[in-house]
Nucleic acid binder design. Structure first.
Lengths: 229, 229
DNA sequence: TATAAAAGTTAGATTAGTCTAACAATTATT
DNA sequence: AATAATTGTTAGACTAATCTAACTTTTATA
């Protein structure tokens, strides 16, 4: 049985090497930043995870998940996203509240519990932030994703998902920017990336820090990779 | 914020000094047995809890809860029993499966979460084993309770609650003895306490280890303390 | 009441996960 | 290619929760 901590390392590794598609391996420093611990701690821990055959790693090298590690990590994410869905759809929590709670609930191990919960929620495909929920086998829909910071000026897009971080969600709430909402980039400042967007009947100027955390699809065809217009 | 472990100590103390009404204080050895750790460990831990004003204790003395400790412990029990109710009534778990899972879920701290869950379950008064659920203020219905091992031969009783231990519940399942079922003691052996009981259309011989864990009320008046017949 | 038994404490060790500080290897830059 | 910057490792220390073994206090009993 994996500890809380080990599960958090595997979860972070899935996020860094599976979801962020640039590379399927990651350095110790990057992982440390992501987990908010020091590199020294990560060095020790990945050695331990390697001894359990959960990651591939050797001294001074990059870290990547073994298939077992990937499965274990994926199951943590499955639990996280299912609990978020429960909190939101059954207990009426808002989307910016569920993340913190799910951080704790995701470590309840029982597979039977999580499968029953899945059934109780009617096998949801997406969590309240628009992210796909891995199935019982750890498989997940990994759509090609484009963020609001990448798309061209002028073309209508729709917000499909938002990175699951309390601050992002709260900020979006404050400026009344919602999931599934249509949004257009009016202007993007080359100098600092400040971006003017219109949506509903509002216009806001937002920073790259925000736009990098919002995923969009073409408003016409619904795809992230499209050739419309 | 209390650790898992500290919460378990407080929970055990509530069980030993509030629910088991004999005494409102308990020795280190007893507590150690109950928590399945060594007395030395408990010695250290109660000193720590005393420094946090959660228990009253001095060297070589008995341990008892302060009002703050009692409240904290009661909240753990509230969470435990509400999660048990959720697992049983919403996810369809059987009464002998819920205890283990609730042992983990009870340590999720958010008060908001537990109050929402309470509401979602429609403010249940009892958990699946028939035990009262403490309210938001940590108050609980503490009925006078009599066990199957204490009642007289011949008189009809009804099972009102069962001590929340997986083995007890599984054993009861095996002999088809259920909560709310009427039961009569046919004979109790003075030598070893072996007891012959009839219920439904069955007769079983059971040990004191079982009868001490089953709570009953008079089948006529529904009270544990009655003067019927 | 003296002594034996039971109950409780202390000291020192262990494990997991973390840290800091000093060092080593790798990568980038001039 | 030499050196600087970045990245990663090691050693040693700390905390929480546990253990064992030796010791002390309290309680029960002969």
């Amino acid at each position: 049985m994996l500890s809380f901590t080990e599960e958090n390392y595997l979860k972070a590794l899935v996020e860094l090497t599976v979801f962020d598609a640039d590379s399927d391996e990651v350095g110790v420093n990057r992982l440390a930043t992501c987990l908010e611990v020091k590199p020294a701690t990560v060095s020790d821990m990945v050695r331990k995870l390697r001894n359990k055959s959960l990651v591939n790693y050797e001294k001074y090298g990059k870290v990547s998940l073994t298939s077992e590690g990937r499965l274990k990590g994926m199951m943590v994410i499955r639990r996280h996203r299912l609990w978020e869905t429960f909190l939101s759809s059954k207990l009426g929590f808002s989307w910016d509240e569920v993340h913190e709670l799910a951080e704790e609930l995701e470590h309840i191990h029982s597979e039977k519990l999580i499968n029953r919960l899945d059934e109780f929620l009617d096998f949801p495909e997406f969590d309240p932030h628009g992210d796909a929920i891995p199935n019982q086998k750890g498989e997940i829909l990994l759509p090609f994703r484009r963020t609001l910071s990448e798309i061209e000026v002028g073309k209508r897009h729709r917000i499909s998902a938002v990175r699951d971080q309390t601050e992002v969600l709260q900020y979006m709430d404050r400026i009344e920017l919602k999931i599934n909402q249509e949004v257009t980039i009016e202007h993007r400042e080359a100098f600092d990336g400040l971006t003017t967007i219109t949506y509903g009947n509002r216009t806001s100027v937002v920073s790259p820090k925000l736009t990098e955390n919002i995923f969009v699809v073409c408003a016409e065809c619904g795809k992230a990779k499209c050739s419309c217009k």
